[in-house]
Structure formats: structure tokens, C-alpha cells
């Protein structure tokens, strides 16, 4: 944990966390490819890139609970920043967007997907199938109180 405001540059040795809904079955440990690449496919809300959380600011259980929808369960995927950078992904802190510890995978934005579906699909596949180093959860279901930051 850290007492910073989360605006400092992200170190290559940091781990960032991506929350995914359990109901979507984007993570299924029974499959040969347990993580679906769509877990890293930007949607129309991802204008600044896909949201992640710096683990040094928030552990996986907090990431899962933050603004969770009541009654829902989540998994949390872990990614090493150095490996993301090695495939050209920019990981930028964005505490103003989501509070301390929030960051974006800038390349994986809705605009980028519209411009280059194949390129973004490839990056998402590599992250899902090769770069995800851990999966925590499922966490939840959370009640309404867990929606507090």
C-alpha cells in the first residue's frame, strides 16, 4: 500500500488489476483458454482505454468491491506492467478518473478499436492468453454498502 495520490509514474515492476464480471464467464478455469480475450476488448465507454488498478494501491478484494453492482460477483486478473509495455501497451495513471490507484491501458480505447479491430484483437488475445499472471476471486456478491470507495 502507498500513501501517494496515484499520479506518480507506474513502475515496470508493478502489477495492475483488471476486474471482470463472473456472470459473463470471461474466466472459466475449465477451458483450455481460461481467459476470454474479450476481457480486454474496449467497449464504447472505454474512451481513455481499459480501466485497471495498481495493486500497490488496492488489493484484489478492494478492486472487486469498488462500486460493485449489488448481488454481483467478480474475478480480478493480474498483469505485470513490464510485460504489457513489452507488447507496446501504455499504462498511465489516471487518479482523477477513478481515484488513487486507477490507471488506463491507453492503447485499448474505443477509438483505437474502431480504427484497428484486428490490431486491438491481437493485443487483447496476447494479454488474455499469455500475459495474465494471476486470477483472484470470485469476490462477492456485494451488498449496497460495498459500493462505497
Amino acid at each position: 500500500m502507498t500513501s501517494g495520490d496515484g499520479s506518480e509514474p507506474i513502475d515496470k515492476d508493478e502489477i495492475v488489476l483488471r476486474r471482470i464480471p463472473a456472470t459473463f464467464e470471461w474466466y472459466n478455469p475449465g477451458l483450455g483458454k481460461p481467459i476470454a480475450w474479450v476481457a480486454f476488448k474496449p467497449n464504447e465507454n472505454d474512451r481513455s482505454g481499459i480501466s485497471v488498478w495498481r495493486r500497490k494501491y488496492r488489493p484484489p478484494c478492494e478492486v472487486a468491491a469498488r462500486n460493485a453492482k449489488p448481488g454481483r460477483r467478480y474475478y480480478v486478473l493480474g498483469l505485470r506492467v513490464a510485460l504489457l509495455r513489452a507488447i507496446g501497451i501504455t499504462v498511465e495513471p489516471s487518479p482523477l478518473e477513478g481515484g488513487p490507484g486507477h490507471a488506463n491501458l491507453v492503447n485499448l480505447s474505443s477509438d483505437a478499436y474502431r480504427r484497428d479491430k484486428d490490431g486491438i484483437t491481437q493485443l487483447a488475445k496476447i494479454i488474455a492468453e499469455r500475459l495474465t499472471i494471476c486470477v483472484d476471486g470470485p469476490f462477492g456478491p456485494f451488498d449496497i454498502d460495498a459500493r462505497q470507495e
Binding site: 459473463f24 472459466n28 477451458l31 476470454a36 474479450v38 474496449p42 464504447e44
Partner: peptide, 10 residues
Amino acid sequence: PMRVVPDGDG
């Protein structure tokens, strides 16, 4: 198919 999932974008 081995996987059928929502893509999160409709």
C-alpha cells in the same frame, strides 16, 4: 463453440 460470452459492448 467452446465459449459463448457477451462482449461487454452489446
